[in-house]
Design a protein around this nucleic acid. Structure first.
Lengths: 335, 335
DNA sequence: CTGTTAGCGCATTCAT
DNA sequence: ATGAATGCGCTAACAG
């Protein structure tokens, strides 16, 4: 029963009693007025009977394109990037494309050699949350490139898909101000990328004109334990104790909550804590985190759309996706 | 400045003053005693100067193999699977292989058509945590297959890489018994796969002979909110209230902790809660979760090794990886 | 030791 | 409307 070898277009041609070229035409979908309807139908039936699938290697070789995009992410174990991938993969599939992942070992640093690692041949690259200069190697390679969440680029640079993080921070700050908080510490990521620089900058700007505000900053790595330590520093620093910790991510907020509890401070009544990203973690901790929801899937989807446009030579307008504050139990009126 | 077209092995050959076949031999690493050291060096230098990279489509077409594996996972947004991927990708890269992901849209159900979707051509498949019969289509396709975390298969079936989940559960149960707990509710996943069936079975078995034990079970979906509801049911059920909730995963444990707090029960002093998986979530919640650490990366790595062995015709012994209980703050002596 | 040759499966151009 | 011929870039068998 085993027809062990995979059928080729020649096998289909033989079965349908036509030439291989005709098979290619019909299955390629471009036979209008070139092949008779009857012949086309015969070809399709033969292909179905043999369970024919075109050999992608051969197709790629012939076409010089692979219909595959490379998605470069700092770390797949972060839910945000997994969701970006999901969005990109969805749009890719809708367009007959594939996506292969390249989890950059250098984190957000220069991506050394995506091609040695992601072994598939690639038509283009989508880079998520990388430092602006981290992709020189790729840009030089002449590969079409789209950058996600890396800030508005030069008009003649690669297309970008950004999140309105500044607006998100603004919403958080106003939320905290509205609750009466005036002594606020920003628990900031120590990662030097656009998304975090703009957050710090926006916090400063929004708080600058407000009377009676005391803003301080603690930086730490993007993990629970460093955040806990940063929060301990923030809460035991000399001067008035902050009534709110504005964190650059839900993971940091979780660490901050641990610190608060260890110091005997009740969240939210004695200390408000806000997150960012709105990962599933925001609902897993208690109290649930006030956070900013990022449309991660949509970032991936728009990134893939931008790349597809780029590949077809269509113009690619820059794109900024809105984000929304989700107020939950970790923030409350200042004591 | 733009040498727009990518250099081919012919370009390298011309530059080095040798034939294309020689280039192939040298760069393919199999020239021992077939090409002189001087020639080989010239080829390597020419390749370096031109920044030559072999065309993978052509190589695949010629070889009939793609050096690419497909990893089928239920959901990439779960940290466990992201880590399995990381492990598999690492071993793959060490062996010049690539990994493409197929996040099965049907969750753990039958994987309909991995090949239409994952567009790369594939040498073999690694399936993680799928129902045993969910891969009939792949098995029939005659593709080499390795199954992860799906229980010991038939001796003549596909190779398997399993976790010692039964042992993990045993460790949890003994930990709870050692703390004096006798009224225990198992917050169980409602997903019908080997890994969860064996957990439920092991809980029953381990508790069966112990005098004075009252075991109950609440099933729920693998998410925080369903788990919270299940825990509420468990804690407000008629009869003696459980002093410990043994959860099938950290996510469920997080939900259980929320329920406890809402009901005014302090974790761990009035209620112990144990998790499973030891995700980063276990350290993000407060108190930190007693959990069972799963070597997820190692599962992926061993899975890839098994597939590589399978592809080279080497025998593949079944493999079971040990797991370890990590006792933390969410469990304490029974009140 | 090295070069020549053939062919992987497909899309395409040119005849018919 | 269809078939024959070509070549994408590579590796492997064989010739020198």
């Amino acid at each position: 029963m085993a027809e062990s070898a995979r059928p080729t277009s020649r096998d289909v041609a033989r079965q349908a009693g036509v030439s291989q070229a005709t098979v290619s035409l019909v299955l390629g979908g471009k036979w209008r007025g070139r092949v008779s309807e009857r012949t086309a139908e015969a070809v399709r039936q033969a292909a179905g009977e043999l369970d024919y699938r075109p050999n992608l290697a051969a197709r790629s070789l012939r076409l010089g394109r692979t219909r595959t995009a490379l998605l470069v992410v700092p770390a797949l174990t972060h839910e945000y990037f997994a969701r970006v991938y999901a969005g990109a993969a969805r749009v890719a599939e809708e367009n007959g494309f594939g996506v292969v992942l390249y989890p950059s070992p250098e984190g957000i640093g220069p991506a050394r050699d995506p091609f040695g690692s992601a072994r598939a041949a690639i038509d283009g690259v989508i880079a998520s949350s990388m430092a602006a200069d981290a992709l020189a190697g790729i840009g030089d390679g002449g590969l079409p490139l789209v950058m996600l969440d890396s800030g508005p680029g030069a008009p003649d640079g690669p297309p970008t898909v950004d999140l309105a993080v500044a607006d998100g921070i603004r919403q958080v700050v106003r939320h905290l101000l509205g609750l009466g908080h005036r002594t606020i510490t920003h628990i900031a990521s120590d990662v030097d990328t656009w998304t975090f620089r703009i957050r710090a900058q926006t916090v400063r700007e929004e708080l600058a004109g407000v009377p009676g505000v005391l803003l301080r900053t603690e930086r730490c790595a993007l993990d629970v334990e460093p955040a806990r330590q940063a929060a301990v520093r923030a809460l035991s620093a000399p001067g008035p104790r902050p009534t709110a910790l504005l964190c650059d991510g839900d993971v940091l907020a979780a660490g901050a909550c641990k610190a608060a509890r260890a110091l005997g401070l009740a969240v939210p009544h004695e200390l408000s804590v806000s997150g960012f990203d709105d990962l599933s973690l925001a609902l897993a901790v208690d109290p649930e985190l006030t956070s900013v929801r990022l449309p991660a899937e949509e970032v991936g989807a728009q990134g893939m759309r931008a790349l597809l446009a780029l590949l077809s030579g269509r113009p690619v307008p820059p794109c900024e996706l809105p984000v929304t504050l989700v107020a939950r139990g970790s923030t409350a009126p200042a004591p």
